[in-house]
Nucleic acid binder design. Structure first.
Lengths: 365, 365
DNA sequence: CTGAAAGCGCTTACAG
DNA sequence: CTGAAAGCGCTTACAG
């Protein structure tokens, strides 16, 4: 039945009698040879059309394009890949962020790849094992990837970037500071966002504040936490190191961090957790102690994952446009212009914004 | 500096004089021709070794294998794919389950693909759009996928399965009942698990129970909910339709369902939610009403996602081994034996188990 | 057990 | 603007 649609389309008025008599058989099975033969040009010309070469007469192009459409022809990515010496696959390399983060990133990348002929291949890895770079290298090399998207924490690994550069694989790194040339970076201004959280809590009147950071080896920790601290500092609030807890971006570490902070005297009236998972842990610890949120304790998270609006009360947090980041990264990889034009001196950046919900208010006292 | 590592590796002790003089150049760039030439056999023989053909003299095989290892040769998947007329890619097709579910499924599938030379390509889709089957078909066809893994709800779509069968693409469907021949199915005994939840709550002494199901169009809804109801029934408890709420497997629908059920009189002393997200919604509704869990209300979920242990109190739930399911499905796709041997009459099955945590106890009265 | 020829569906030089 | 030849790195028949 799919045959009828194209058929009706080319029931044109006695024109182009040279085309397909009854060659219109199995859709999706046509090759470049069929297109060339039926259209009366050479393979090479068809190839030029496929690759958008300007060196094709408009009329020729139209004719070829028309037949391709009619036959539902799509060039075989494998054959093209073999000839091109690279594939039409984009790799997504990551090391154990939260499920929501991964999935959003994937959706974002796929948004950009839709109808491009490129597909997304996922490659989780364990950056704590020292042969993980080999693993990524083999992955990229064997699959002859068109490019890879690197997200924190692997995006922060200079050695990985170097290894990829050496084998000539394009990459885009998503990170909270510019670590590479502009053409290979998407930067999230985590520092500025952290500072915004600080301003917000200060403006509510909080003076006694606790901070739960991520692991020290994450760049985002330095940016989010550092931005928060310098934001407070700019408003004349100095946060004692006692009130800073190094978490692990996990729920459990959020619980532990809150247990620690809430046992302090004076007890903080607000806690900024550097991701939502840890903020959820803070909720648990607060509840266990019979503290109400936001009555006794204001909580601010980071990420704005679905979790944030599912907590009760709904979590005030920093919205990180993860999906957009994935979109941008994939798009950069697809753009035909890999040459680092001096024109694009500054890397693409995104600034997360504060979303105020119900977990924060003025302190009681 | 990475150059030094491989260099030291092949500074061999004057051995293997017949092999590569100084042909050992760029690792990963050797081709079947190099192997054939340096080893003194034909391409075809090397090809036989690659494909584990028994028609190779053991000594020849050893010789070839040794050189391949020495040169770090790996056959080009693209070239093999072109000749084989299929790729070494496995597709994962899904329609918007929770992030945790997707990610676990991906990890499971990747567990099975590790070092197999196959890669995982993700393909989310929207089964509510009527052209989604076309999308999946094009995806599978253009990429010449080796096979696809279908997870609920798309796994339950007979039309999708038919479309895939028509274009000759292998698939494995993960679903809660056997919908296809054994070789294409992984079955989760959701019914039995639902029934286990019922037995548990009954044994605690609950008589007044609420049920929040998934959307009717999901097969899992019928199995989980139906299993629960028949489990209660077997123990002499009849659940009035008033106490059944059709949710949407989302957090918000869990809230709505609980609002509905908790307004009933008599108020249920226990609620079974057909996934953890909805159970989390029940928590929110209960808290808003000032009801304590499990004091005033016992809650049982389904999935055992990380969320379950992050809620407070920790959620009693049914553990669904999602990662294992992904593993099994991918493994089935890789197994060389696509022929449905009558021997394997029954499909692979997995039975989720109850995990008792802190959200359930005997009713107060 | 082994190999020479042809082909998978495209593209790259090289000519015109 | 267009094309004939050779090649990308493998495999399938077909012989032996």
């Amino acid at each position: 039945m799919t045959a009828s649609t194209p058929r009706s389309r080319h029931s044109r008025t006695a024109a182009t009698p040279t085309t397909a008599p009854e060659d219109v058989v199995l859709p999706g099975k046509a090759t470049i040879n069929d297109i060339a033969r039926l259209t009366g040009v050479s393979k090479k010309t068809v190839s030029r059309v496929i690759n958008n070469s300007p060196l094709v007469h408009p009329e020729t192009r139209e004719k070829v394009l028309a037949l391709m459409k009619q036959l539902g022809y799509v060039p075989d990515p494998q054959a093209r890949g073999l000839a091109f010496r690279r594939s039409f696959l984009i790799g997504l390399v990551y090391d154990n962020p939260t499920a929501q983060f991964i999935v959003n990133m994937q959706y974002g990348a796929l948004d950009a790849l839709r109808d491009s002929g490129y597909e997304l291949v996922v490659h989780p890895c364990d950056s704590s094992k020292d042969d993980y770079i080999d693993g990524v290298r083999r992955f990229a090399q064997q699959q002859k990837l068109h490019g890879v998207i690197l997200i924190p924490r692997v995006s922060e690994d200079e050695q990985l970037a170097t290894a990829l550069r050496e084998i000539g694989v394009r990459y885009v790194r998503i990170a909270s500071i510019p670590l590479d040339e502009a053409a290979s970076m998407v930067v999230t201004h985590d520092r500025q966002a952290g500072s915004e959280a600080a301003n917000y809590l200060e403006s509510l009147g909080h003076r006694n504040i606790g901070l739960i950071t991520g692991p020290r080896r994450y760049r985002s920790t330095i940016e989010r936490g550092g931005g928060f601290l310098s934001g407070l500092d700019a408003r004349g609030i100095e946060l004692s190191p006692d009130y800073i807890y190094e978490g692990g971006y996990t729920f459990d570490s959020g619980v532990a961090g809150a247990e620690y902070l809430l046992a302090k005297s004076p007890r903080p009236t607000a806690i900024f957790a550097c991701n939502d998972e840890m903020a959820a842990g803070v909720y648990k610890a607060a509840m266990r102690r019979g503290l109400s949120i936001p009555g006794d304790l204001s909580v601010v998270g980071y990420d704005d994952s679905p979790l944030a609006s599912q907590l009760w009360p709904a979590l005030t947090t920093i919205h990180s446009p993860i999906r957009d980041l994935g979109h941008m990264a994939a798009q950069m990889l697809l753009s035909d212009d890999p040459s680092p034009t001096g024109a694009v001196a500054s890397p693409r950046t995104v600034t997360p914004r504060l979303v105020v919900r119900d977990s924060s208010q003025r302190p009681k006292g």
